Amino acid sequence: MRCLVKGFTLIEMVIGILVISITMVYFTTMLNNSTKFVADPWHQIRAAELGSALLNEIISKSFDENSDRSGGAIRCSSVDTGAVNCTTPANLGADTNEDSRDDYDDVDDYHNLNSTGNDIIELSLPNNNNLANNYAQYQLSVSVFYDANLDGVNDNAIGTHKLIQITVTDPAGNQNAFSAYRSNY
C-alpha cells in the first residue's frame, strides 16, 4: 500500500514566504511613491485659483500712481493730456503711504510683493480659518515691470505696458507662473 502525503516541504514554505515578502515590499514601495503624485492636482488647482485671483486683483487697479482713477481720461506720460510722467522703473513698488494690499491703488504697488501662509488670504477673507489652512504652506511673489515691446523682458524705461508676473509655490515646491499685461489707457 502506498501512502500519499500531501503538503509542502519546509524549503518550499521558506521560498514561498520569501517570494511573498519581496512582492509586498515592491508593491508598498510603488504605492508609497505614487501617493506624492496624488496631491499634485490639488496643489495645482489651489495654485491656479490663488494666482488667478491675485492677477484679477492686480489688473483691476489703475496703470500707474499718476494715472486718472476715474475713467482713464488722463494717462501718465501722455503727450496729448499734458499729464505728469509715469513712475520710473527704479521707483516701482508700494508707495510710502501704502502699507498693505488694502492700500494698493495701481499695478506697480504689487512689485516685490512676497506673501506666505495667512498673509495670502488675510485681505480677502480675514476670518476664514478653513481657507487659511488650505493655503498655509503656499508662497507667492509678484514682479511688475515696463515692457513696451511685449517681449517679456524688462525695458528699464517708462513704457506703455507693464508686465505682471506672479509665481505661486505650492507645498511640494512646484512653481506655477501667471502673467498678464496692463496697458496705459
Results as ranks from 00 to 15, higher is better:
M24I: 13
S179K: 05
S141K: 13
C76Y: 12
P41T: 00
L125D: 15
I166C: 05
S52W: 04
D109A: 09
A180Q: 12
V79E: 09
A53S: 12
D99E: 09
I17F: 07
T116V: 14
S21H: 03
V142D: 04
I59K: 10
L92A: 02
K162H: 00
P89V: 02
N128Y: 12
V144P: 00
F63T: 11
F37H: 08
L125V: 14
D147N: 08
V84C: 03
D109G: 11
V25E: 05
N129V: 15
R182P: 01
T23L: 06
D109R: 04
I20K: 02
C3E: 10
A48N: 06
V14H: 12
E65L: 09
N184E: 09
R2S: 10
R2D: 12
G93P: 00
P89N: 10
L55Q: 10
A94N: 05
I58G: 14
A132L: 14
M13S: 06
Y135S: 15
E65A: 04
T35Q: 15
N154G: 04
V153S: 14
G82V: 11
A73Y: 01
R75V: 07
V79Q: 10
L54T: 04
S100H: 12
S52H: 06
Y135N: 13
L163K: 04
A172N: 11
G16R: 11
Q44T: 08
Y135C: 12
A39L: 11
L125R: 12
L18T: 11
D80F: 13
K61V: 10
M13W: 06
T23K: 01
A39I: 07
D106M: 05
A177V: 09
N154D: 15
G93F: 00
S100K: 02
V144R: 04
T167L: 00
D108C: 06
A73H: 01
D40Y: 11
N56E: 15
N32T: 15
C3K: 05
D40M: 13
A53P: 00
C3A: 09
L18W: 09
T96A: 13
C86K: 01
Q137P: 04
S60L: 03
N176M: 05
N129T: 15
S60M: 04
F63C: 07
N118V: 14
A177Y: 08
D80L: 12
D68Q: 08
C76E: 02
L113A: 06
S70I: 09
H161N: 07
T167E: 01
E49R: 15
G16P: 01
R46Y: 00
N129F: 01
A39M: 10
N97D: 14
S77Y: 13
S70D: 05
M30Y: 13
N91A: 08
A48W: 00
L92K: 03
F178S: 03
N32A: 13
N97M: 01
A47T: 02
I164D: 00
T160W: 02
I164T: 00
